[in-house]
Design a protein around this nucleic acid. Sequence first.
DNA 1: ACCTGAACACCGTTCAAGT
DNA 2: ACCTGAACACCGTTCAAGT
Lengths: 227, 227
Amino acid sequence: MGDGGYELLWGAKTRPARGRPPALSRERIVAEALAIADAEGLQQVSMKHLAERLGSGVMSLYRHVPGKDELVALMYDATMTDPPRLPEGEGWRAAMTAWALAVRDLFHAHPWALALATANHAMGPGEARWLDTALGVFEAEGLPAEICLAAVMAVNGYVGGAVRPEIQGQDDPHWFRFLQHESAREDYPHVYRLVAENSFTVPTVDVFGFGLERVLDGLERYIEDHR
Amino acid sequence: MGDGGYELLWGAKTRPARGRPPALSRERIVAEALAIADAEGLQQVSMKHLAERLGSGVMSLYRHVPGKDELVALMYDATMTDPPRLPEGEGWRAAMTAWALAVRDLFHAHPWALALATANHAMGPGEARWLDTALGVFEAEGLPAEICLAAVMAVNGYVGGAVRPEIQGQDDPHWFRFLQHESAREDYPHVYRLVAENSFTVPTVDVFGFGLERVLDGLERYIEDHR
DNA sequence: ACCTGAACACCGTTCAAGT
DNA sequence: ACCTGAACACCGTTCAAGT
């Protein structure tokens, strides 16, 4: 996909409903692929497996989608079809908190999408709407556009990075297993202390929330200073 | 890899140098794979291609590495063999700024590693040392261990997320191409304004730095309040 | 015992044969 | 013209044949 799937993401969606609707459609293919990824992981989304689920031949898929890469791009954008609902009239901070949590929910619902978020891709209509929503929050504060973008990037960047350990922590007991090594105590003294205090295995702090509050605090200070 | 490559990452590294050193070694395999990934992308790292580069048979690789997944885990950790050098005696903020920029440099040098950072994996010795370095910065401020972890996660999370558009922006002119659409102005008014002001195509703000300063501001406020 | 080629079970996709 | 099976060029890995 030379254009990063751009044409496909933004092209005409549906043809006029004339005659019998075809058994296969791009919407149905993407929806089924998304269901497979959610349930079995992205790696299980093969053209063959997908075709079986849809009760069609493998090659029939290529009638509606140019290739695997473009399908994945469509899947990714499809996770963001519903724009987040933000509280209105409660200020930018409440709105951005809701936005950040919505992004987090998104990655929890579709863990496979997190790796894609870091991959090269054209922006689809879904992602564009999510971005636009967040930009609007800061623009309402009267900030210049480029500062709005930087602010959104700060929040979005934080969320994307902070969600990772949450997702993988669930089924990965090996994360800190290296501390059982003899040399661990001297090689990684600070990590060792962290675990020794048992504060990692039984976290008493909402790590995600703590970081988010710091990011928002930092933005708040900037906004107040530049009002 | 049932243990996420843990045993391999932390197992004995080298056997005693007796007799002629074998032509192939895990270190050499990982180093060559890393070179391929840096130059041609992670997708070009196939066992066959890698074997050709090393002048060996494909199956010979499996003498030193259990499989592809474990190889990738070793490659990822190999990007972090050199722990970052942080300024000492200039306070936590200077140190964490250096740490954050070092992480950013890492992903710029190995763009393929960014997607892996979001994937499930066991922590290797390299990543552990980087984490330990950052934890030490906050521990020196006398913060409880769990707060230190949350603070590092905030910075690391931000960097990981904010680096993404930097990396992909270079060779992706399609990112905002959707704005050429007729309906874009009303569908995405805030994004439209952003581009209309030309502030995106010719950014006058260091987006990465701006966000980082906000995150550090937020942490600074917390640290001062809890001193 | 050590090493490694041939064979296997996949993968996405091309292409031409079918209707 | 539309659809799709067989064939192709890959992929990682098993297994047994080689030394």
